[in-house]
Write a protein that binds this DNA or RNA. Structure first.
Lengths: 164, 164
DNA sequence: ATGGGTGCAAAATTTTTGCATTACC
DNA sequence: GGTAATGCAAAAATTTTGCACCCAT
C-alpha cells in the first residue's frame, strides 16, 4: 500500500467514524480531515484552514474550528496549547509527545514508548490519567542551545537573562 | 522562622534580584511579588491582579502582565499554558510539574524528582532541554475519573464521547 | 423535509502596545 | 533630572457564537 493509499484509507475511516456518530459528511469536513491526515504532524487551526482553502476557498475558519471541535469530542483529534495562545491540532492515533522549543517555536516528536514509565509513575502515584498525545514538553531544542552557546545537558532551571 | 517571615524574606530576595538587574522597585511590583509568593501555587494573570487590587486598586492588569513578563525574563517566574488561552504563573523556584485536569480544571503538583529520569531520556536522546517547571501534563484527575465511572489506570488514549 | 452544518460578522477572551504622566533611582 | 514604569485605552490575536441559509440524510 502506498503512503497515499494509506492516507486515503485513514480519511475514509475518520469520515466513517463521523458518520456513525450521526454527523454529516460535508465537503468542508472532507477537506479538513484530508488536511489533518495529509499533514501527518501538527497544524494550527489557521494552518488547517490554509490547506483546506487551497482546495476550496469558501471554507471558513469558523467551520475549521467547529469541525476540529467535533473531531475532538469524538476522540479523533487532539489539540495542545503551546506558546502564546495558539493551539496545534493532530490526529489522536499518532501516539507521540511534543518537544516544543520556546525559543524557535519548533516542535519535535518523541515516541510514546519513551515515556511509558512516566505514565506509570503519574498514574500509580497520583491517580491521574494523562491524555495520550495531549502533552507538550516545553524547553529549548538542541539547535537553539548551540546557537545560544549553552551546554544544555544540565537539568538546571530556566536561563535567566538578567543582563541580556 | 515562621511561614510569614520566610515569605517576607523571599519577597525581599526577589525584589533585590529585580533591583540588581536595573529594574525599579515600585509599589505595584511589591504587591505583585507578594501575591506570587503568598499564593505559593498557581495564579492566572487576572488572579494576580485581583489579589494585588485588593491591596491597591489602582494597579492595572497591564502592569501585572508587564511585571510578570519582566520577572519571567529574569528567570524568577514561569508561566505555562493550560486549557483555553489563559496561562498560569508561578515562582520558578518551586520545582514541580503540573497535572492539569482537562475536565475540572484542577491543577495538582508533582515533585520534580519524580520525573527526573524523564528528563534524562529527553535530554540524552533528543538534545532537548526541558524547562524545569515549565511543563504541564494534561489529562484527567482521579476525582473526575470516578465521577465519570472510568477505571483510569489503562494507559489508553482519549475518551471518545461518540454517543454523548 | 428536517435539522445539522456553513458562512458571515460580530462578540468574547486573553494578551500586547502606544502614549502621556508618574515616580523611582 | 532622567528614564523606567504605570494607567488607560485601544489594538492584536485567537477562539466562540448568533443567525439566516443551505444541503446531507
Amino acid at each position: 500500500m502506498t503512503l497515499r493509499e494509506s492516507e486515503d484509507k485513514r480519511v475514509v475511516e475518520v469520515l466513517a467514524h463521523l458518520a456513525s456518530s450521526r454527523h454529516r459528511i460535508t465537503t468542508a469536513r472532507r477537506h479538513i480531515v484530508t488536511a489533518l491526515v495529509g499533514a501527518g504532524g501538527h497544524l494550527t487551526a489557521e494552518e488547517v484552514a490554509a490547506v483546506v482553502q487551497a482546495q476550496d476557498p469558501s471554507v471558513h475558519l469558523a467551520t475549521v474550528y467547529r469541525t476540529l471541535e467535533a473531531l475532538e469530542r469524538l476522540g479523533i483529534v487532539i489539540h495542545i496549547h503551546l506558546g502564546h495562545g495558539r493551539a496545534i491540532y493532530h490526529l489522536a492515533d499518532s501516539s507521540h509527545y511534543h518537544l516544543y522549543c520556546q525559543l524557535c517555536g519548533s516542535v519535535q516528536e518523541i515516541p510514546q514508548a519513551e515515556l511509558d514509565n512516566l505514565f506509570a509513575v503519574v498514574a500509580n502515584s497520583y491517580g491521574f490519567k494523562p491524555s495520550l498525545g495531549h502533552f507538550a514538553i516545553i524547553g529549548t531544542c538542541g539547535r537553539c542551545m548551540e546557537r545560544k552557546g549553552l551546554n544544555g545537558l544540565s537539568s538546571g532551571g530556566s536561563s535567566p537573562e538578567s543582563i541580556a
